[in-house]
Design a protein around this nucleic acid. Sequence first.
DNA 1: CAGTATCCTACGTGATACTG
DNA 2: CAGTATCACGTAGGATACTG
Lengths: 160, 160
Amino acid sequence: MKYKTFDHMNCSLAQTLSVIGERWTLLILRDAFFGAKRFGQFQRSLGIAKNILSARLNMLVEEGILERRESSQGAHAEYILTERGIDLQPILLSMTHWGDKHRPNPEGDRLIFTERESGKPIRRMGVVSEDGRPLQAREVRAVVGAGLGEQSVSFRKSAD
Amino acid sequence: MKYKTFDHMNCSLAQTLSVIGERWTLLILRDAFFGAKRFGQFQRSLGIAKNILSARLNMLVEEGILERRESSQGAHAEYILTERGIDLQPILLSMTHWGDKHRPNPEGDRLIFTERESGKPIRRMGVVSEDGRPLQAREVRAVVGAGLGEQSVSFRKSAD
DNA sequence: CAGTATCCTACGTGATACTG
DNA sequence: CAGTATCACGTAGGATACTG
């Protein structure tokens, strides 16, 4: 009767959720992307309980998403995003964009993400074809690959 | 001492998490994207308890992500993705791509997402400049907008 | 300041029984 | 089949005290 884990599911989404699927995790990572490094920075920013924060940071280090470094100056540790952590950026940005659109702040956008060099806003996250054209959701379909083996994925005749 | 909600946070990511931040929700939506419509389809596919599924479906309908329709044929209801739900596609795909890369199936990719027309695989989800160039994570910065008011977002001198 | 440890609560969850 | 209701349980989460 225990909590069901998603680990056994042969599904990339479920695998990802088993790592970052808990409420606080993505908010911690958001702060990391904004430059938070120290325990106290995360804690004050989020208003999260210290034991939860401690557990999440340790988990993220175990998963290779953050790296724990002893700071050269001062006795505190620092938590730094690894490459694997930086790879989560599209997820965070997609979620931010959805919130911008569907749960907006009446005063206007909260954050605008821009290209550092030019200052121009980036394009809203969305599916892009191999040669760079934006695609509508319905123009995309899923094809079963080798990793899925015998499993089917569709509830109808053709996967969407 | 109750569970803290994220609703009050003036952050698009937190707002999104307060809607789809619970474990099962994205898996239910995954199935919806693959064509699942009926209660039993979700239930068998996920192995989720019926009361949880019921609660999640109702929540998603309330949030305007799914629409509940009485099927013309047969007495069952159907749950259909709304536009707002379809807008979640970049989130699901970003998470799927991360799982593909960092928790791969040794046999190969589980699913390949392709452009329906040409059959060519889509580009991996990532940040794209206004004029369509792929950007590295570090080439992106966040600028405070009107919706953020007085709040700051940075832990250092310049936001990342 | 940076955590760890402890205790407590309530929410998410799961099994099962029940209804239309 | 499509749910709703009930109940029991564990884990996430929160407050606080404690240690280096």
